[in-house]
Amino acid sequence: MSHQCEHEHDHHHDSPPPATNNAQSLFSFVNTPNVQCLNTNSHGSSDSAACFIKSRDDQYDVSKYLESDADCQMILHIPFTCICRIFSLVLRTSRSSSGTTSPKTIKIFKNFSKNIDFDTLEDSKPQHEVEHPRDVGIDLDGAPRTEITDTDDSSFVEHHLPRHLFQNAHSLTLFMQSAWEDDEDITRCFYLEMRGESAGQKRGNNAVPLLTVYESAPNPVDHQKLENEQQGSSLGM
């Protein structure tokens, strides 16, 4: 990606953020059926998540996208199937044109446990906040394109996150709060890629980590005691 935002304030480190790469995509760890999108309309697919969480093979596809409904704001809540460490976000959004605007302020929450709605997020402090660059993205001229792909790499923006704040993440919530132009205009999200790594702990559908306890060194004495107890129980029945 040719456009990177490295000006986000991370007082924990003064040095530039480490570079990321395509192999660090967390696409395979997204719990797609449980992705939530608020104040959005999906285009090109009935599945809202598929409109913006795309594989690397589909990163240039502009026939599918998510757009805000009543105004510029939208909420994207993305759970993972395992615990993750998140390094950066790669976004491809709309540019300003007739009726559309570029998002400006994006608040980023890790493991948000309260009600996911606009009032709650407005009043909550995020782990991080970024300013998306003005007028960088895709311009559909107010209407869907007939082209299926757009290979302009300069329309992608990578936002590096403070890594010490985004460890042990089982979900990520993005609140696109304001826009560069009129807040009543709509914003569009064509692509969102999260980069990082899995910590290896699998999660179930109820969002509770699934932990397996292994016996590091089986003790034959313990197994003999268990067999004797089972035999004694059988005799007493």
Rank of each mutant, 00 (worst) to 15 (best):
D135L: 06
E215W: 13
L226E: 15
H223N: 11
T212Y: 12
P18E: 15
T149S: 05
A217T: 10
R145S: 14
P218D: 13
A169F: 04
D47F: 06
P103H: 01
L121V: 07
Q224H: 14
T32C: 07
H223M: 12
P144S: 05
R145V: 04
I138R: 03
D47P: 04
V130Y: 07
N34P: 01
M176Y: 06
P126N: 03
H132C: 11
T149H: 03
I116L: 08
D10N: 11
V136P: 01
T32K: 11
G196F: 03
D152Y: 03
I75T: 02
S124C: 04
L210N: 09
T146D: 10
E129S: 11
Q201I: 09
E229M: 09
I83S: 14
S233V: 09
Q36N: 06
G142E: 06
S154E: 08
E131M: 09
I108C: 05
K110W: 04
A217C: 07
T100P: 05
S155A: 13
V62L: 04
P17L: 13
P33E: 11
E197C: 10
H77D: 08
V35K: 03
Q201D: 06
S97F: 14
H159M: 04
V208I: 14
C51N: 01
P220M: 12
T105Y: 00
H43E: 10
H160I: 02
E193D: 15
G99A: 11
S113Y: 00
D117W: 10
K225W: 14
Q224L: 15
L226W: 08
S178R: 01
P162N: 05
P209K: 08
D139W: 04
V130E: 05
H77W: 08
D153L: 07
E131A: 10
E181T: 09
V30F: 04
L174S: 01
K54G: 05
N115G: 06
S45L: 05
F29P: 00
D150Q: 02
D141T: 02
K114E: 08
G236A: 13
Q231C: 07
V136T: 09
E129P: 00
Q167Y: 06
T81G: 13
S46M: 09
Q59Y: 01
H170S: 11
D153V: 06
E129M: 06
K202F: 09
G196R: 04
R134E: 13
S48I: 00
D119K: 14
N219P: 01
K202A: 14
Y60Q: 00
V35D: 04
D135E: 14
N206S: 15
S96H: 13
Y60R: 00
P16D: 12
